Amino acid sequence: MRLSIIIPCYNMELYLKECVDSLLDQQMNSSDYEIIIVNDESKDSTLQIAQDYAGKHSNVKVIDKKNAGVGAARNSGYDSATGEYIYFLDPDDYVAQNTLPILLDVCSKNNLDILTFVSKSVVSKPYPYSKNIDSLDINTDLDIKDGITYIADKKHKNEIWWYLIRRDFIKNTGIRFVEGKWMEDAILTSELFCQAKRMAHTTLDVHRYRILPTSAMRNKSPEHYNKVIYDNANAAHVYDKLIATIPSSHPNAEACINRLKTRQQSFVFFLMVRLMKSDISVSEIPAMLSDFEKIDAYPLKKFIGEDYHGIGYSCLVFVFNRKPLINPFIKMFRSFYTLTQ
């Protein structure tokens, strides 16, 4: 078995078919890959759709479990995976035709722990074909490096759906998704990259990221919105432990740590942005900032730079880094925001 594709699902009846159909349209033998759909106690027809595919395709498997969140669903799929490589795909996304066999060939030929690739954001118009599959020589000048060097050289996405992972590699690290919290793939991605010995990036156009107003990160219900804020804070603290594991003897340690510090402070920055629109009392902010100071995630000294720049970011950082300005600024913003809703 060359590949296991794990799809965690919660109420995805509108999109699951396009996702699975794109995986079945890859010119691969069914014995070479498996599609593991993990139903996280959906309330719509997601489970029935998944079971229909499993009934028609021997390489489609369904795990039906009690709702425990996307991290737990991904872990369940990972535990049952048998492929040499693993791909975690969201059910509202899809992949371009015939791209997965190419990625697998590159991974196997070069014994890669991780292979990253290109993702394209889409709304409603379908983009089923890779824009450069016929013109790209994927093996030419493939730059293979360890994960610390990769992070040092290149800004990376938090999400899990833009790379393949060798299953033996992730298994040997013992790394799993944090369960019950958001930002779980942001944590796992950096943890995995830091331990990879052989990874590379290809400019092959593969993944389609569907932009949905109803996605988890855009959910504006107070309970969910506030949980994302607290889970951003948790991610910042997890990164403190991760940064401490980078060996100082590595030639690219400093550059890697700087980029991880930028990512850590991005969690604090976007937490503060979300706080502006939340109903969390401003009286909680000083304690949060004090905790961030202890791990050097605040003030935001490493945030503005190559990865995050522009007048908007700079103006907000100016305010966020000055404690006396934060409470009046947020109160003023909330008053204005309430009037415009």
Rank of each mutant, 00 (worst) to 15 (best):
S135Y: 02
A50N: 00
N39D: 13
M183C: 07
I37S: 10
R259Y: 00
V106K: 10
N67T: 08
L212D: 12
F329Q: 07
E84A: 01
S314I: 10
N139D: 00
E191S: 06
M288K: 03
I243P: 00
D40C: 05
E13L: 04
H201N: 07
V273N: 03
E223P: 02
N110K: 11
K227N: 05
Y313E: 04
I35P: 10
R167M: 05
H201I: 06
Y337A: 04
R274G: 14
S22K: 05
S266F: 04
H201M: 03
V122M: 05
Y53G: 08
Y85F: 02
P126L: 01
S76E: 02
H156N: 09
I148E: 01
D240K: 08
E13R: 02
A68T: 04
K277M: 12
N75F: 11
I285T: 08
Q195T: 07
F318E: 12
N258M: 03
Q265N: 09
C315S: 15
Y298E: 12
R218H: 14
A68R: 06
R334H: 06
I133E: 08
C194F: 02
P213K: 02
V123L: 06
P328S: 01
I304L: 15
C315N: 12
R208M: 04
E223D: 15
Y209G: 01
P251N: 01
Q51E: 10
L300S: 05
K220P: 09
R74I: 14
V319K: 11
Y15V: 10
K157Q: 13
K301C: 01
Q195M: 08
N321M: 14
E191H: 07
P126G: 08
A253F: 07
L16K: 08
L212H: 08
Y78N: 07
T149F: 00
M276C: 04
I86P: 15
T173L: 15
P8F: 01
V122L: 00
N67A: 02
D52N: 12
K66D: 09
L142T: 05
N132F: 07
F267H: 14
N258L: 01
W161L: 00
Q26I: 12
I165D: 05
I144T: 15
T116S: 13
G147P: 12
S4V: 09
D32S: 01
Y15S: 13
D113P: 09
Y239Q: 09
A236Y: 08
L16R: 10
L242M: 04
V282W: 03
R274N: 14
P91A: 12
H224D: 03
D21Y: 15
M288S: 11
F292T: 13
E41S: 01
F117H: 09
S135V: 06
C194Y: 05
P299F: 07
T116Y: 12
K323T: 12
A50F: 02
L289R: 11
